[in-house]
């Protein structure tokens, strides 16, 4: 049975799976913005590199004869680590030297890093799609005309676990507290003995590692990636972050899911080619009507 109700539900589920991926990327934007007030344009590229790293490492492990399950887990973790380090290196080389410079300088530097990474992957890996090395089961759970594929379920599960883990990390641990302190007031935090530089590096590491997870899972979901995917996904995730209120961690999660669902519904009912227009329309509408986001609070700018 596929009535209109089931079709709607199916679109919502597809949207949630993609939205969970947006949310994971959006977390990186939001965490970095929360601490150093920089829109890290290179973050979309970090996500793309995470997907590439995952596929390359997985292929290598499979070629070495590792069993599929282990290879998947190892590739997953290795791509998180590697991509996280890329994030740390980016901060260290392109952003940290510009602290205290004019506001435009880090933004332009970030844009430069983004182009650099895109070209770096293009030149080292070629322009053709990178294919996920294993054909994963296309089966899933189905009921009442609505189908949830195993991969969609895995995406939702992993994203939920990671978000819960991140929330616990930020709320409960020493490093998490240091992060929140630095986000409130980096100068004061540094005076109270918080090593702000390490906290910023850690923020980039976590954000980039989460983006790598997103990349790896999207590669599983679609079976391939391309060096250009970072640009548009990065933009979408940014929209998600703004939607939830930039700098706000739960906001980024909600924003990602909302954006995924809205986009999926728009693609289903309006037409696929205008999907991106819908996302940007949301961005502009949110920025104009409620710039603090759905879950943010408005503060007057300090004079």
């Amino acid at each position: 049975m596929t009535g209109p109700g089931a079709q709607l539900l199916q679109q919502v589920i597809n949207g949630l799976a993609v939205g969970a991926v947006y949310a994971l990327i959006a977390l990186g934007y939001t965490m970095v913005y929360g601490i150093i007030e920089l829109i890290n344009f290179a973050h979309g590229e970090i996500y793309m590199m995470g997907a590439y790293a995952g596929i390359i490492i997985l292929s290598a492990l499979l070629a070495l004869g590792a069993p599929l399950g282990w290879a998947l887990i190892m590739a997953f973790l290795a791509s998180m680590l590697l991509t996280g380090l890329y994030g740390v290196a980016t901060e260290r080389l392109a952003y940290r030297p510009l602290r205290g410079a004019s506001r435009l300088a880090p933004l332009i530097s970030a844009l430069g890093m983004s182009i650099f990474f895109q070209q770096y992957v293009l030149l080292s890996q070629g322009a053709r799609d990178k294919i996920f090395p294993v054909e994963l089961s296309s089966g899933g759970f189905a009921a009442a005309g609505v189908k949830v594929s195993y991969i969609q379920a895995a995406i939702l599960l992993v994203a939920t676990i990671l978000m819960a883990g991140l929330t616990a990390f930020v709320q409960r641990t020493r490093m998490g507290r240091a992060m929140r302190a630095s986000a409130q007031d980096p100068c004061m935090a540094s005076l109270s003995g918080v090593p702000v530089n390490s906290v910023i590096a850690m923020t980039f590491f976590i954000g980039s590692a989460l983006a790598a997870v997103a990349g790896f899972m999207i590669a599983m979901y679609y079976g391939k990636v391309n060096y250009l995917v970072g640009y548009i996904a990065g933009l979408k995730a940014f929209v998600a972050a703004v939607l939830g209120g930039i700098g706000n961690i739960p906001g980024a999660m909600v924003g990602g899911l909302v954006l995924g669902v809205v986009e999926s519904l728009a693609a289903g009912y309006i037409g696929g080619e205008y999907k991106d227009v819908v996302a940007f329309g949301i961005l502009i509408a949110v920025l104009i009507a409620r710039p603090e986001g759905l879950m943010g609070t408005r503060l007057p700018e300090k004079v």
């Binding site: 392109a94 510009l98 880090p106 332009i108 530097s109 182009i115 895109q118 070209q119 770096y120 030149l123």
Partner: peptide
């Protein structure tokens, strides 16, 4: 020529760092 964009990206980062 294919390295042109790579160089552009890098140049933007370096310009901001060394000669804004």
């Amino acid at each position: 020529e294919e390295y042109r964009l790579l160089a552009f990206g890098l140049a933007m980062v370096l310009m901001m760092r060394y000669r804004p």
